[in-house]
Design a protein around this nucleic acid. Structure first.
Lengths: 166, 166
DNA sequence: TTAGGTGCAAATTCTTTGCACCCTG
DNA sequence: CAGGGTGCAAAGAATTTGCACCTAA
């Protein structure tokens, strides 16, 4: 498993180098580290989280560089964002076709793959709205951990999707 | 068409009244107007947009009331949010099962229905991650308008998903 | 060498909160 | 009439920007 993850990350990193070179981007330490961090996690972190992780190895990076770098990667098509728009951003370096499970309570997001779901057909009515670049399934529910917590603290009102401030 | 939209909105509004009453919420003008505004649009607006719309009829509302009301409605299950988490919020009063098309360029989001997609099966591997409350399809692409613009202004670099500041 | 990239700090933008008054139930 | 709800103004977060220095190519 570890082996295949390393391979996958190497492949992603290589792709990054190629695309960056073609675009005339400089391969700075910061960019490499930020991309490496994102490519190596399944967590779909936000900028702040990536910042903290990269800061370990590179104590002088700044948060704004992380932001700038992530958006640069995004504009190059090297990472995607979760959520429909620019705001509320969490990043994803997984460019393989995949789907998402997200917990409505704690915000956890996990990728999953499914050959069956990959094959889903987009209705013609949608094609009339615009061109289709991608179609994936979003599953919402309670993750295993939150199910357990919920059972413990049985509050009648929903704890609300909000809750978790940083 | 107009007729059926009115009916739909009346039904939503009635549902709101019922749920609010049961929860012991007061039915203030502000809440009614804010909900009505959301129930009557297909646009999945953010708080600011709703605020501006409601302000027309009710010049004294404040933006913070809009925020508070939307989250209250959300906690009661009367509206859902687009995007996986609390951040980056756009709201939706459509509780019927539906899917989304969103434009990667301008951020437009449209609902669509599909009996076929409603029936999609969530893999067992996902059920192991947690309980499944909902599964829907997110389609990303370029909307008709942006396709046209793109063709006109043929810039080689992507205009980026960002772009539109308020 | 040199243009693009970075860190820093300040500026913006977005959202939430404290408090006194108001209005629904 | 009472307690939740609202508006206002101010606080807090999150994200972006201007600028001088730095470094990959």
């Amino acid at each position: 498993m570890r082996k295949s993850e390393d391979t996958r990350n190497d492949r992603r990193l290589e792709h990054f180098r190629t695309v960056a070179r073609e675009a005339g981007l400089k391969l700075t330490h910061q960019r490499l580290e930020i991309f490496r961090e994102l490519a190596g996690t399944e967590e779909h972190p936000d900028a702040e989280t990536i910042f903290r992780a990269v800061q370990q190895r590179m104590p002088t990076v700044s948060l704004d560089t992380v932001y700038r770098t992530l958006w640069t990667l995004h504009d190059l098509g090297l990472v995607t964002t979760l959520g429909p728009r620019r705001e509320g951003v969490r990043f994803d370096a997984n460019l393989d076709r995949h789907h998402h499970f997200s917990c409505v309570r704690c915000g956890l997001v996990r990728d999953f793959e499914s050959a069956e779901l990959d094959g889903l057909r987009v209705p013609d009515s949608v094609r009339r709205l615009g061109s289709v670049a991608d179609a994936h399934v979003e599953v919402r529910g309670l993750c295993a951990t939150c199910q357990r917590d919920r059972r413990t603290s049985r509050d009648p009102k929903p704890p609300a999707t909000r809750g978790e401030r940083r």
